[in-house]
Design a protein around this nucleic acid. Sequence first.
DNA 1: TGCAATTAAGGGTATATACCCGCACCCATG
DNA 2: CATGGGTGCGGGTATATACCCTTAATTGCA
Lengths: 132, 132
Amino acid sequence: MSDPCICIAVRKASRKLTARYDAALEPVGINLAQFSLLRNISRHEPVSLTRLAEIVELDRSTLGRNVRVLQRMGLATIMPGADLREATLSLTEAGRQVLERAVPIWEGTQDEIQQRLGVAGAAQLEALLGSL
Amino acid sequence: MSDPCICIAVRKASRKLTARYDAALEPVGINLAQFSLLRNISRHEPVSLTRLAEIVELDRSTLGRNVRVLQRMGLATIMPGADLREATLSLTEAGRQVLERAVPIWEGTQDEIQQRLGVAGAAQLEALLGSL
DNA sequence: TGCAATTAAGGGTATATACCCGCACCCATG
DNA sequence: CATGGGTGCGGGTATATACCCTTAATTGCA
């Protein structure tokens, strides 16, 4: 279990944790990364690809591909903006509904994890990760 | 910076941290995931795919694909074992040399991170991640 | 000993992720 | 008002990751 490499430890935790959230969200038909995107689009819509990439700190091309998946699923729209270079992202009605159903599931999973870590532990973890 | 979702925070940290280690290892021509694999093969060789997958806690098919990349790079070999179903993994001489050159780079990066977190912080982080 | 159940890999498919390059669009300056 | 530099995206390519299904080899039991 003990991994001397901090990065490997974080990556491993990332895989495990992601799997847990993904499994919880599975009934809604989305995974955690998609949930996060839906929520971020919802918070900032309409938002351009580049802007959202800055917000979620993902590579722009990565985000573009991820959003296209949401588009294929009928959960988000990608439309040209006033500046024709910009891709403007919004949620569809279906996207809003999925997000609404997903939120309580996310909260439940989040609570489980927090209980395992303890409130103080969770705060510490976030602080430590943030300082990386 | 503050992300209420623990999983998203961990994933973000994973991306950032991985990028840092990857950049450091770039002169040797491998990334952190490959470094980790080389080191684990080195420690347990000869080792079967399934066994190594258990050790590094990766999906077997994922590991198989990752090892094939090392094979293409000339750093590892995949040979049938006594049990013909098994794929036996070993390092090549080139693989051993790359690993040897990579270790001090990894140590340097690891030290940087640990200094940023503080010794106590690093230990806490690993403990928290392990308890996930 | 011969067949059924188990085990090990491999391939198909899909998402997440990042880097680089080319193209299209926009704007400011001459 | 034309052009050049800057900006926003998309596509190509590659790795990492996981799930499912198939094939092949082994093993254990009748």
